[in-house]
Write a protein that binds this DNA or RNA. Structure first.
Length: 631
RNA sequence: GCCGGAGUAGCUCAGCUGGUAGAGCACCUGAUUUGUAAUCAGGCGGCCGUCGGUUCGAGUCCGACCUCCGGCUCCA
């Protein structure tokens, strides 16, 4: 048989030859360094047989940044971890140990709980294995043999019983694991392996199941790569909005109100910049601003359907005989407002916007600064419309998203998820083809990365969720666009159609920033605190060189202050110290004002250190385009 | 909520095996009057997260709770 190499040349091999055989046929060095192969683009263990005509690519230890090559290295590392743990903790039960984004983990059921300090011992045992060297041997066995082999491992047994296809095992040293592979040939390629943490994790990700102990680690083809990774992590920690917020005095947290930020005047400058933009753009795009109560009798939540599904997350307030809940969302309020008049099809669409304070009683363990808060506001809106108007409304929302992502410079952080028709869908396939098509085309039109979550839409309509990654690459749900045919019905929303009959309107729920708090958190991490000029809490700081220049500096700041957020740092410290302070506060522009300065000649310093001498008019001309464009 | 880790001055952190708390920055005062990332000197500042226990004695040991951090679950 013949296989096709990446340069399109053909390699003659005996029938049944494996990837390793192919590598040997090409050269002994390649065979030695080979870690994995791709057959027709799909990863495959080197030990598995090839077939005539298959295009193959052999990955080696030199492909040290290839995600697949790293995954196989880390998968094998997970097996070394499992071997070490079974050595050190007899009686431990093994669950699963896959490679993940930046490393690997293995889930164990320990007879006695282990602690973080135990990791050192385990790490040492792994080092010993690495020094000794390990080879992986693959073997295919029958289901019955597998059951026998793993008879004392309940989790493995469950995996055997639910596995699809043939059962394979991998052996290394004295350790055997049920595993689909692929794996390295041997442990020589693992040049750096580090256990990074310990956590609880539920078996099969279900909180009804027993909790296992998960050990996290990472591994690389070189020591330098590990060091670089750890350094990147450290840098990311410096961008953490929970660190930057208090450091830059934007917001603070108090244990007296977990999950709710205390915003300072500087933080509010950012918050209000978002609010101002939201109001201006909403007005331009035909939204009307409304305001509905924060607190509602729980009867409303029962009627809207939220009580049953999300009642646990509702903050409750007893009031005499009745029970109130702080609103976790604006929808029912907007629907009640809609119902206050008899609506005609001529009134539609009606676009209600409200960025009210919302409360959700999130579990303590899940709170995370501004990104996962108990109190927050969404740039929420509900568009009441007819079926015919859906497409146009959604298109307009996507234009809006497009504008926001450009304005905030976060386009490359964003990606979307389109949730499509579930099994219990309402309506015909043609209708779903239509609505899903509307959303998909809109996504493509604005060129947003997206994936499709098949079957995860609500039964009454598809939805789009917008995500952004934080400094550590963790994705957060930001905005959402959801078509709702259920709540308007439950809350009795109707309008008179041209046919003189009552109809239930569609409601499109939409938040584009998502939570303002979360959005600001992500912005801070994205910019590492160096916010764009128009968002910076202090945009220009004037530094009088000495006492004699204070009045002139104040006058300048006052004039700049008519348009921008400007202040003066009084000469109580040396100029050097005040410049340093301005840099640490990440102020975009500082103007040093002394004997040499006048309106005709200002000493302007940009964040980072670049200096120039310009007139006031030139400075203003330079700042003006830094404000968001008014499309 | 669950597993693991942590909580000392406004901030960043030190405080060995139990003997009664320390530095730098910030802040205040004084001197200095300053030209692009820290002038010098002095001073103020601690319910050592909270409650309980062990002990002659607890920041240190034990327990519970609160909060934070890394995960898991959840996230309308």
């Amino acid at each position: 048989m013949k296989v096709v190499l990446p340069d399109n040349s053909k390699l003659e091999l005996p029938d049944g030859a494996s990837g390793l055989d192919a590598a040997r046929a090409i050269g002994p060095k390649l065979a030695e360094q080979a870690v994995l192969m791709r057959v027709d683009g799909r990863v495959q263990d080197l030990r598995l047989p090839l077939h005539d005509g298959e295009p193959i690519q052999i990955l080696t230890t030199r492909d040290k940044s290839d995600p697949d090559a790293l995954a196989v290295l880390r998968h094998s590392s997970a097996h070394l971890l499992a071997e070490a743990v079974t050595q050190l903790y007899p009686g431990v039960k093994l669950a699963i140990g896959p490679p993940i984004e930046n490393g690997f983990y293995y889930d164990f059921d320990f007879p006695e709980p282990i602690r973080e300090e135990d990791l050192e011992k385990i790490q040492a045992e792994i080092e010993r294995e690495l020094a000794e060297g390990r080879e992986w041997v693959r073997q295919e066995i029958s289901r019955d043999e597998a059951r026998k082999l793993f008879s004392s491992d309940p989790y493995k047994l469950e995996l055997v019983d639910t596995a699809e296809g043939d059962i394979s095992i991998y052996k290394q040293g004295g350790f055997t694991d049920l595993c689909r592979g692929p794996h390295l040939q041997n442990s020589k390629s693992i040049k750096a392996l580090k256990l990074t943490g310990l956590a609880g994790a539920y078996w099969r990700g279900d909180s009804e199941n027993p909790q296992l102990t998960r050990i996290y680690g990472t591994a690389f083809y070189s020591r330098e790569d590990l060091d670089a990774y750890l350094e990147r992590l450290e840098l990311a920690r410096g961008r953490d909005h929970r660190r930057l917020g208090p450091q830059l005095d934007l917001f603070h947290m108090s244990e007296y109100s977990p999950g709710s930020a205390l915003w300072t005047a500087k933080g509010m400058a950012i918050y209000n910049a978002l609010e101002d933009l939201r109001r201006r753009e909403n007005a331009k795009r035909g939204y009307v601003e409304v305001k509905t109560p924060l607190m509602w009798d729980v009867e409303l939540w029962k009627r809207s359907g939220h009580w049953e599904k999300y009642g646990e997350n509702l903050f409750r307030i007893e009031h005499g005989e009745s029970l109130y809940g702080l609103k976790p969302m604006n929808c029912p309020g907007h629907m009640l407002l809609f119902n206050t008049q008899l609506r005609s099809y001529r009134d539609l669409p009606i676009r209600y916007a409200e960025a009210a304070v919302l409360h959700r009683d999130e579990p303590t363990g899940s709170l995370q600064g501004l990104t996962r808060a108990r109190q927050f506001s969404q740039d929420d809106a509900h568009v009441f419309c007819t079926e015919d108007q859906i497409q146009e409304e959604i298109d307009a929302m996507f234009d809006y998203v497009d504008y926001l992502y450009d304005t905030f410079g976060v386009r490359e952080l964003a990606h979307a998820e389109l949730a499509t028709r579930p099994d219990n869908k309402l309506g015909t396939d043609e209708q779903w083809d239509h609505t899903e098509g509307v959303l998909r085309r809109a996504l493509e039109r604005i060129g947003l990365r997206h994936r499709v979550a098949e079957g995860e839409g609500a039964f009454y309509g598809p939805k789009i969720d917008f995500f952004m990654d934080d400094a550590l690459g963790r994705p957060w749900q930001m905005g959402t666009i959801q078509l709702d045919g259920q709540q308007p019905e439950r809350l009795g929303c109707t309008y008179m159609g041209s046919d003189n009959r009552e109809h239930t309107p569609y409601v499109i729920h939409r938040a584009l920033y998502g939570s303002l708090e979360r959005f600001i958190g992500i912005l801070l991490e994205h910019y590492g605190g160096d916010l764009p000029f128009w968002l910076a809490p202090v945009q220009v700081r004037v530094l009088p060189v000495g006492e004699a220049h204070l009045a002139a500096a104040q006058d300048l700041a006052h004039r700049l202050g008519a348009i921008y957020r400007a202040d003066v740092a009084e000469p109580t410290d040396t100029i050097g110290k005040r410049i340093r302070a301005a840099e640490l506060e990440k102020i975009p522009f500082t103007v040093v004002y002394g004997d040499r300065e006048s309106d005709e000649s200002l000493a302007v310093r940009e964040r980072g250190g670049e200096q120039s001498t310009v007139s006031l008019a030139e400075l203003l001309a330079r700042l003006e385009p830094l404000l968001p464009s008014d499309v």
